[in-house]
Design a protein around this nucleic acid. Structure first.
Lengths: 289, 289
DNA sequence: CATTACTCATTCATTTTTGAATGGATGCCT
DNA sequence: AGGCATCCATTCAAAAATGAATGAGTAATG
């Protein structure tokens, strides 16, 4: 039962398998095939002289030796990622890919004009905008720049308040005229429950305790669309509501709470010219509003 | 100038090249060929989009990017080594390879009998004894067990005093009869200068200030042999001197200082049965003397 | 119970990687 | 200056790794 030094690239394969809990899934993530993953894993297990996964009908699960390997492989991966970041951080040219993530409506309404302008200013930079509910990892470089409502805890992330977004209650004109403090008979379009307690939802239920929920979505664009189609009232970011045809802001004594939007990127990329240039433009165009 | 995530196995190649400062040397160390090393390095440089080495006539030297990569690759290597150690440390069987290093004479005179006995007791363990002047790294697992005169500083090494070795002055019978405090006309065989100030050399020059040095060697066995061939007097470990035919210990008012020999192994291997078994036998056979 | 959508293992043709051999350049020692 | 060793780049045949296809097993779904 010898424990020969494992091939480093096989450790990456191991990591992918441990995360995907399947050979096919790991292969997809690594851009390789399922048979290859199986063979590399077998080779790795033979090299270290121990089974790393328990093959059960419900996928692969780590053995004790696999747990040990996972811990160390994760440290190695963190180091490899730090290396990649530090090297791209040194790239002095205004070219390459810049990957951003934010919420759907924010990307469409707020970011798209800035991206278009940036594209004219720096044609060699390819901006890649991903709108997705899941949180992208700056450490893993799943994204270079994240814009979101919550601030950032991680010390390695440079965060900055970008813009405060006001929220308002929107309705299809002539449909309902809700009364603050009541709201009986008013249908509401609200955030998906998966998102937990959002301030605007709390404000809604407090302001219109007798209203009922007509639809939910995790997508603000969808909410706005539903509102325009007459499904119900919706609390929307004001830039989105104003940009949506067919709905109007309902003026009330109190508006929903506004929210700060933050941007964040990894320390190691703070010298990256294309990132700096984009952030500068972003701040110039959005902070003033 | 994109900085794609580098292939992990290429990072190992990079490390070897950075250390050997040549493609051929790196290939030898990794058990691969020189063209392969060149191609892998080229692929790595293309992947990260930066030259990693400055090719000069006097070998490869690291660029700034190379220095960055070296730092991170070394962290990854340390982690891979820790992984390998932790996995072998879990190997519960009394089989496999056990790699030891010590000084030449100590291996021949002191260890060989113990190894022979251990081989009879545990035939499935292959003991590998390397006698070499250079210091083997326990962290890199160049050796599982080190025996040497100096103790160990590293916190991850488990050290233990094994045996105290007395030293004596040896001579070919009838050749010289040195007088303590003088020693005029007496030729000496001493340790190589590369080893710096050794206590027995200091003792020699203090006891026989007028003696002259006839030969040097970094190898105690060679010193004993030279002494037996009549080249000169030598301070030798008593077990070695007594075991060498043709020389006798010269009795003096004061003997050279004796020295403690220490053994050390890595924490991660402390549960390794074959190591425990060998250390136990070693202590039983040598500590009593 | 059949269907569908997953798994993973095996096979085999193809692609990629590898190393021995060779040539040329450079430094070192006699 | 000649001889010798060592370095790297290139070539090309052999070896190794790969992926599409296939089969078989399992769990969820209708």
């Amino acid at each position: 039962m010898p424990a020969a030094p494992p091939e480093w690239s096989d450790l990456r394969v191991f990591l992918a398998i441990a995360r995907a809990r399947s050979l096919g899934g790991a292969g997809r993530r690594l851009g390789q095939s399922q048979p290859t993953m199986g063979r590399r894993l077998r080779a790795l297990e033979e090299a270290v002289g121990a089974k790393l996964f328990q093959r059960s009908s419900s996928g692969f699960s780590l053995t004790d030796e696999g747990e040990i390997m996972l811990r160390h492989a994760e440290v190695m991966e963190a180091e490899a990622l730090a290396l990649a970041r530090e090297l791209t951080g040194r790239d002095g040219s205004l070219e390459g890919v810049l990957r951003l993530t934010c919420s759907d409506w924010f990307g469409r309404i707020m970011l798209a004009p800035v991206i278009a302008e940036f594209q004219r200013l720096s044609p060699a930079v390819v901006v890649e905008l991903l709108t997705d509910a899941r949180i992208y990892s700056l450490a893993r470089r799943e994204a270079d720049l994240v814009i979101r409502i919550a601030s950032f805890d991680e010390p390695e992330v440079i965060a900055r308040r970008l813009v405060t977004i006001g929220y308002g209650l929107y309705a299809k004109p002539g449909c309902w005229l809700p009364v603050a403090g009541d709201g009986a008979g008013c249908p509401l379009v609200v955030m998906d429950t998966g998102f937990g307690a959002m301030p605007d939802v709390a404000w809604l239920t407090r302001t219109f305790p007798k209203a009922h929920i007509a639809a939910r979505s995790n997508n603000r664009d969808v909410q706005a669309q539903l509102c325009a189609l007459g499904v119900g009232l919706a609390v929307l970011p004001i830039p989105l509501g104003d940009a949506t045809a067919g709905i109007e802001k309902v003026e009330l004594v109190s508006d929903p709470p506004s929210r700060d939007n933050w941007l964040g990127f990894h320390r190691d990329l703070r010298q990256l010219p294309r990132l700096r240039a984009f952030v500068d433009l972003l701040v110039a165009r959005l902070s003033s509003r």
